[in-house]
């Protein structure tokens, strides 16, 4: 197993790491088997076209280098996207953004994808109720 240079750079200097205190929604995903936990915070606003977009996104992760790097690249990919297109971010998108991920570590990318999905779903639930 060898990590790409890009993955290691993301691991060393992750983007969008931290909490959003007044987040609109939070999503959490964990892998019971390996023990990794990931938490995604999102702040949503409307763009000029009236679509809801991810205005700000941050992550907190307890996990291996691949899990931390995947969290970082996911937040990069999701920032500024509409909720619809953010929902469509796949494991493969994250793996490509990281310049490749060793096969046994690809579940970390799925974890990131799931945490974001949950955050968006939670947001939609809350905004539905508010209506």
């Amino acid at each position: 197993m060898q990590y790409s240079k890009k993955l290691l750079e993301y691991f060393k200097n992750p983007h969008n790491q931290g909490k959003i205190k007044d987040a609109d929604a939070v999503g959490e995903a964990g892998n019971i088997k390996c023990g990794d936990i990931m938490k995604i915070y999102i702040k949503v606003k409307k763009n000029q076209a009236g679509e809801e977009i991810i205005d700000d996104i941050k992550f907190e992760t307890l996990g291996c280098a691949a899990a931390i790097a995947a969290s970082s690249s996911l937040t990069d990919l999701a920032k500024g996207k509409t909720l619809d297109s953010a929902m469509k971010i796949t494991k493969q998108d994250i793996v490509e953004e990281l310049g490749g991920v060793p096969l046994i570590k690809q579940h970390c990318s799925i974890l990131a994808q799931n945490a974001l999905k949950k955050a968006i779903e939670n947001y939609l639930l809350v905004s539905e109720k508010a209506r």
Binding site: Y3, L8, F11, K12, L62, G63, C64, A65, I68
Partner: peptide
Amino acid sequence: QNAEGESILMLLDM
């Protein structure tokens, strides 16, 4: 607690 082993290994390796 609250720090994963492989991540510790990687940071130490750096």
